[in-house]
Write a protein that binds this DNA or RNA. Structure first.
Lengths: 237, 237, 237, 237
DNA sequence: GATGAATGAGCGTTCATTCAT
DNA sequence: GATGAATGAACGCTCATTCAT
């Protein structure tokens, strides 16, 4: 109950609309300046509503943060399955899931960092709910990994740890974007990383599947689907 | 210049003493509750000094945060070389560096998270300095990696990315401690992770070196090199 | 631009109302205790509003001082012309202007002293604006003097210095009120002072005009034009 | 008793020396920035002593202000008699007194303003003592005036008011220095002012005495002793 | 449903004053 | 006698939250 955001307004569609309005302003502002530093007034201004209105759809400043963080996690949980839709080949699904994850993060770097930075500002219950959602999105990846292992495309590896490795690799794109962003694009980053992490893991049977999966990479530059996608560009300073 | 913390007190030893006192209280409090939520009064109380005193050694609340974050990074830069002292074998050095990093982080999980969470609250110059220190500590790892590659113990891998993988793996122990901590100890975590990440990377020549290196692991239980390292729990306090 | 006091509230009438409320409390308090010694809380309390409210209509403690000082000068610039309205005879105008000045000052001794005491606490631009307003009020006097000179009612004197003499004479009523107030009333003070300062200055033609002007002195007792005006006491409330 | 500044130090010469040191720094600082804005630390620094030392010669911040203001008034009471020494002619004495007063004020404009601005920050007793000293210095002038009247050099004027007119005229040099300073020097100011104020007051007998007195004006430019010393320079802007 | 003026608790910071050395 | 590190009361100011319109 207390984990829910309670609104004084009855009409559900209005609640949904207003909350989206508020949370979008909040994500942008919190992402740029931080949660504590951002005032409710700023959020209201950016959302194009009055301060009072916010308190009709939310009962707390923390509610706004919760709404914002939830939205970020939900976007992961929305985008990964969307990328998986229609794919049946385990290797293709694994590939698609990781790349989808990488791309949402790339498109919402500030938002991703926001989750890392401000989850702790939530009260326990809600913090746990955020973590649950993160676990859920990890699950989307680990399911793919398990599938690959079951199908003999991956070696019989430590699924949990490997999944975390993948996840951290994706998050690292945001966490260390100040390091990477100037050196390479998200696709090269994913290519190089997957190559590094998969090599030891993929079985001989998997190699073929992997080739096919790469061909399916959406919006990939033609030559990046070649055998050596990771041709290093700049190699550190 | 403006990156330095300026104190009104002249005696350097006193400044060092007091600043340490202050920053220790700050790291603890900021780590537990967050920077913005913690008041200077709380820091003063915890440090066992008066509010006024803090402002004799620091000119700003931000100074305290800067002092705190600097100290955390410095502890990495202190501990990793300490673990390397006396070691000459490249593989042993790599191993020691990673394990040392993992252990400092394990001992200072809150502090590590603090860096992730609050670096952005610093003004540009200081934020950059913190990032520089992080790059410095990464360098301690990448030097070891390069050494191993040069000596033919590692394959000719993408050093930069591999280093980041290692680093993120260590950080993940803190970032996802809520997931891992209840399941395994830092040593098991390191064992499993290194196994996963090194397997594909280590050359045949390296395998032997690795074996020897593991034997040299300080306070490592003998069977931790077995197939199922996950049995182990935490060894540190 | 920066010389203006900026308010967060839009409705102009409200701004005017609240600022008057605030500035009246401020003038009283600053006049009695001094600007630096008076806290914003005290001003708020006296104005019957909350501390926060003050900062909605003012952005600074200095803003309050500026508002206060401005109001004092403006009251001079309002009252002197008001006393001149309808008068055409140069001598009558001169007489009315000086007496009006004397009376505003008498009614606002503390406020007048406040200007002397605290103008320096304003930042340059605003200090200059206050001085400009003072120059403006001096001008109201000097215009009358010049008129009298032009009409041959006054000798061809040093207008500027004579005006300053008149002005300082009026200010002295406030500056040295601790000396004068117990000895005579503002009207007697003005009578005696004008007699002293005008005697050498007024031409023969002017003497007649002066007599008439005095007759026009509002609420003046008949015998106050006699040789010994000092018998009189205060008439004002 | 409480009007006296009490020192913890016994040796009287030391007390005198230190207090002078302190008060000189204070007058300079308070004059430039104002009393409340100036910290004891700043005074100590400027005086070249430690904060602690100040509190050995003074028991309060107010003590320092009192010391400072007293010194200013004392300098008037010292300089005027010094200028009178040896002079016996009433007119010459009057002239010398006024000019001496004008010159001390000119040399200590900031200090003079300080008295106007901060006397109120003193507690009653001390405020009264400062006023007493001011009355004393006024007395030095009024004595000269009375002497002139007695000797028939001045008309039988309102001595008290005339004295105040003279005093305010001198003070105005400081109070309105922002107006006058750029237009004329102190001597021209005194010449013009005295001419304006004396003309109606001086008897025929006095005229001669006045001429002689002017000749005695110390350090006067040769032609400024002529019959018309007030040849106006610039006449207002 | 929406607004935004009003509130006041609470924070960062300063600085007069003390006192151990 | 002199120092300056330490104290803590108190101030200016902010901002989440409320509520009359």
């Amino acid at each position: 109950m207390t984990v829910k955001v309670v609104s004084k307004i009855e009409v559900p569609e209005l609640v949904a609309l207003r909350q989206r309005q508020i949370l979008q302003a909040a994500v942008a502002l919190y992402g740029k300046q931080g949660y504590h530093v951002t005032t409710i007034r700023e959020v209201a201004q950016r959302a194009g509503v009055s301060v009072g209105l916010i308190y009709q759809y939310v009962s707390d400043k923390e509610d706004v943060l919760f709404l914002a963080l939830t939205e970020v996690l939900d976007s992961y949980l929305r985008e990964i399955p969307r990328a998986l839709a229609g794919l049946t080949d385990p290797m293709a699904r694994f590939n698609a899931a990781v790349r989808a994850y990488g791309h949402v993060i790339d498109e919402r770097i500030e938002a991703t960092l926001l989750v890392y930075r401000e989850t702790k500002s939530l009260r326990r219950e809600r913090r746990d709910l955020i973590k649950q959602k993160e676990a859920d999105s990890n699950r989307l990846i680990s399911d793919c990994v398990e599938h690959c292992v079951r199908e003999g495309l991956f070696e019989d590896i430590d699924v949990e740890l490997f999944t975390y490795q993948i996840v951290m690799f994706c998050h690292a794109w945001a966490l260390k974007s100040w390091h990477f962003k100037s050196r390479l694009g998200i696709d090269d980053y994913l290519d190089r990383g997957l190559k590094l992490m998969l090599n030891p893991v993929v079985t001989t049977r998997g190699k073929n599947a992997y080739g096919r999966a790469l061909e399916a990479r959406p919006a990939a530059a033609p030559d990046s689907q070649s055998d050596k996608p990771a041709r290093k560009t700049r190699r550190s300073a």
